[in-house]
Amino acid sequence: MKRSKWSVMLALWICLGLMAGAAVSAFAQDKSFPTKPITYLTTFNPGGQSDREARRQQPLLEAILGQKVIVDYKVGGGGALGWSELVRSKPDGYLICGINIPHIIIQPLQQETGYKTEQIVPVSIFQRTPLALAVLKESPYKDLKEMLAAAKAKPGEISIGGSGTFSGHHIATLRLQKMTGAKFNYVPFTGAAPQITAFLGGHVNAIFGNSDDLVKHSDTIRVLGTADDQRFFGFPNAPTFKESGIDLVESIDRGVGLPPNTPEPIVKILEAAFLKIAKDPAIQEQMKKEGFVPLAMGHAESKAHIEKMTAIYKDIIKDIK
């Protein structure tokens, strides 16, 4: 008998909970977007750069949108897990997700990942991390020309460390090889920290690194070329590849995206919020200090950027495969 009394209590508890929930959501129905908390999904580990970016924006977004913003995580598969969840979510604007370029372009090109690049509706791209080719100060290669000459003289003996294969670093190396005819030995690492450690220890001859990682070690390294349109403010003396006659532009860009078929007005509201933050001079100053290039691309501009890069990467991936 005792058991049955117990199950009645259980049912009571559940009903109470459900009722309370229903009451609250009914109460909050008729207002314009957003009327309830927004989830900001991060596809990399808590504490990583994407998470820190989301945490930086969180209070500002709350102030602009007038709703709580909850930072949530869907970590795994180099981001693929979170992005495949994103494209399956309800397109109501209550789930926004950090996106990284080139990741969202390269992954679907490489294998079946559960999402397609075109499915993600970009809201804004707010941060760029240009890549740069660097050697240690003690290295014999004083500039890009010397290094390329050496690589041509002994093909495959100069090693370049990067983070992962089919990644921005890897593709930058491949493109450099293709454009110059030099041959390097590309050694992949599992992330920026092990990559930089091996580089500083002299276990690889050079690296393609992210600007924010390289800035931290500007005393001990020499940047041979920056893969951006302009010189990077952290290394004003380092020429761009373009200045050396090599049209190599590679960066890692961060932004946020929405599920496919999100209504236009919702995209606009979120775009305005993110752009307001991206254009905040204090935020831009912070980003620069950390070694990033602040951007403020809106929905249309981001979309065009992703399409342009997709076309470029398609050709490159075809070559590797």
Binding site: G17, L18, A20, G21, V24, I70
Partner: peptide, 12 residues
């Protein structure tokens, strides 16, 4: 921690 709290989400 962003733990799911289901119907109690009004607690924030």
């Amino acid at each position: 921690l962003t733990l799911p709290i289901g119907p109690l989400s009004f607690l924030g």
